[in-house]
Design a protein around this nucleic acid. Sequence first.
DNA 1: CCAATTTTTCCACAATCCGGAAACTTTGAC
DNA 2: GTCAAAGTTTCCGGATTGTGGAAAAATTGG
Lengths: 254, 254
Amino acid sequence: MAETKTTPGVQSVERAFELLELIGRAGGEAALSELALDTPLPLPTIHRLLRTLVGIGYVRQLNNRRYALGPRLIRLGEVANRQLGALSTPILQNLVNELGESASIAVLDGDMVTYISQAQSPHAMRMITEVGRRSSLHGTSVGKAILAVLDNDRVQRLVNQAGMPAHTPKTITTMHQLFDELEAVRARGYAIDEEEQELGVRCLGMSVPGAPTPMAVSVSGPVTRVTDEFASRAEPYLRAATTQLSAALAVTTG
Amino acid sequence: MAETKTTPGVQSVERAFELLELIGRAGGEAALSELALDTPLPLPTIHRLLRTLVGIGYVRQLNNRRYALGPRLIRLGEVANRQLGALSTPILQNLVNELGESASIAVLDGDMVTYISQAQSPHAMRMITEVGRRSSLHGTSVGKAILAVLDNDRVQRLVNQAGMPAHTPKTITTMHQLFDELEAVRARGYAIDEEEQELGVRCLGMSVPGAPTPMAVSVSGPVTRVTDEFASRAEPYLRAATTQLSAALAVTTG
DNA sequence: CCAATTTTTCCACAATCCGGAAACTTTGAC
DNA sequence: GTCAAAGTTTCCGGATTGTGGAAAAATTGG
């Protein structure tokens, strides 16, 4: 399997989390056999891992025998969120104060992006992204910003896996277009979503350098406000935000 | 350690989650050596497990070398929360509609309770409990309701571990008092927090039967409204709520 | 700059986890 | 109601995988 130089890693732990992810991706609930389709693991192995997770409360078993994410995960998520929120909220809020448009943070999660934090624009007409919401990589500014810092192999793999559904007539739908676009993103330093996700909405996204999990910050608003002039004005603030976030993630915060 | 008849369970997975819990309990961030104090595991083992978790993004390493919960946990927590929220919100809301006081759900989490869901009273003076907030077992109605369904050994162990700090002059502070109180809870079918957590606040708490993780529902309000008459009126609604929740947790919901 | 502490790497042993096969349970068809 | 098919769970021998003592590296403090 072309192992290159990854760290060892405890297999059963990695597999257990893979199963949690799969259940999460399936909407929070899945049958044993469904999980078996999405993973090369043999059924007894999946079953044993799930049984373990059920035993410690991170998965619960419904009486259809299906498996769902357990309540104990909520707490862990809360703590992680609070930690990250404490770091990210002031940074995002500052972006909103300076630029007047909604700002958010998303992480790479499987073959999509997941929004983990947001600060909203004071405008009545504003972009709202629920925390926890997932979007495609190829059709969002955060997604493209993240892809731009990954190597081409990985981009290819992720996008092949997820497909390239068009959300609007402007969505990028071919790999060739996408690679051109990523080249432009790298040259520019940030990604632009030109109504590719939703008509009338334009977003600027910039990667957080050196983040533990690939991660990006974006500002979004209606095309009427998020103009090229806006982008020029926004760039240094985005740069500052990603730099601060990078530092905050790496350094302890008490 | 007096292993009795627990299911096998994959050790490395159990240990990995134990570490996540410990980090969470330490406020979301801990050093390797700190973790070593709270667990009998040898340092290299802890280190290897953490390295694995870092590799897959569930833990991140700060550049003090300390370990913090990673951003990927947020997503899992969100999904679990959404699932549970979908089940619990209408049930809690119904309680609020019928009784007019704030209702919440808490789970046993280590030696404390964690609130995982809430619906607020329409009154201006109302009880607000943030989701994710933790409280003591001996000083809350949910805590006492949960303890009442556990066996005495476990109660003893949990409470010894957590201690019995007094939040108000009415808080139970001795093990003897507590066991008497739990007896009363069992007889009554639900627990009462008589201003033991906060003066002026009275709560009724009832356990969810057969929950995967020990769990309880409560309604809380000012003593002036949460009278004994209120309790009599509330009991059947609480009973209905815990029964519904029990069923909803066990049965799939699409 | 050197000593003490903490974190990380190494490696041989064997305990732990793995997964094929089979038993059991549920679902659906007749 | 009965039987077949699909899905789930248990078993268990074998070897891969994870374990943890010991030592090296890195960091902190004096």
